[in-house]
Amino acid sequence: MSVKAEQFPFPFTEDRYAYSNNSSLQKPARSVTMTDRYLEEIQLKRELLQANHQRCFRSLPLSLESQWEAMRRIFNELAENEPEHFSFEKRGNEYRFQNLLLGEEERFKYRDLSSIERQPLDIAGRHVQEDLIIMGDRHDGLFLEAGQLCFPSNWSLTFVLGMDFKSIHTPVPGITHKDFIGKVERFISRIRQNEAWERKNWSMTISNKLDTPLETYANWGKLRLQVTDENVGELVHLRVEVQRLLRLPLTNDILFTIHTYLLSLNDLIRNDLWLKRLYTTIQFLSDDIAEYKGIALYKNELMQFLEKTLSEKGISL
């Protein structure tokens, strides 16, 4: 599901690729955003949750307080920022959230499990385009304690549930060099309550498929072999995850949200600066990163396509 170019969060600010803590503080602190793909993506999410609930929602009992807090926070944000589409009312301990776009409402008593039919994060996630993760901030580090994950980029919620931050990131090449991942974890553990930080992460996906979990790799991974000089612009999509980290004040845990955007290369190359930056970034990408981001199999086709387009447009680097 591609997004319009105007809403696409192009990730490259420089012409070279390097690991960095590229987080920026959000003012005001937001954890969710709506795009014009809202209805389609919510529908897809609901279908995935219906068909594969175990794969798309997991939680540990310790996460329940944070789930409640996250749900209340997200509904509040939606109602505040999109009042024409959502409302959120509180009467004592009873809450009512209305989603006017879907014609749905959620009623609950805060922290009363008997008032809801699903776990709080599983309810909240059905009203936003983001995947939602709770990272518990424990005395010995950050741990993934709950998640509603429909649109993962080649990872498995089941596999990482309960895992610590460093172990989750083991597959990322070179991530332990100079203790980079340790520093990122330390940074997250210092995020102040009610503050939200944003970073962009990117990779490439063949076709406009948002749901690429590890569990179905056999179905979508092989599409990488189908890229040719002719179809590369249409098939290959730049996949950008806008990731936000918000410190939930009550529980002191982290709400991690991931909003995934896809844009086909044919749409991307209309922007000369984007074309140039994508080209230089891919050019300087090391082999292990190219492999990790799923590009290695069709890197030649991709580079030729970008070079051809640059020369057709008369853009010099």
Binding site: S20, N21, N22, S23, S24, L25, K183, R186, F187, R190, I191, R192, W197
Partner: peptide, 8 residues
């Protein structure tokens, strides 16, 4: 990045 002494 952060300019508040938390990211290193």
């Amino acid at each position: 990045a952060c300019r508040q002494g938390i990211c290193g």
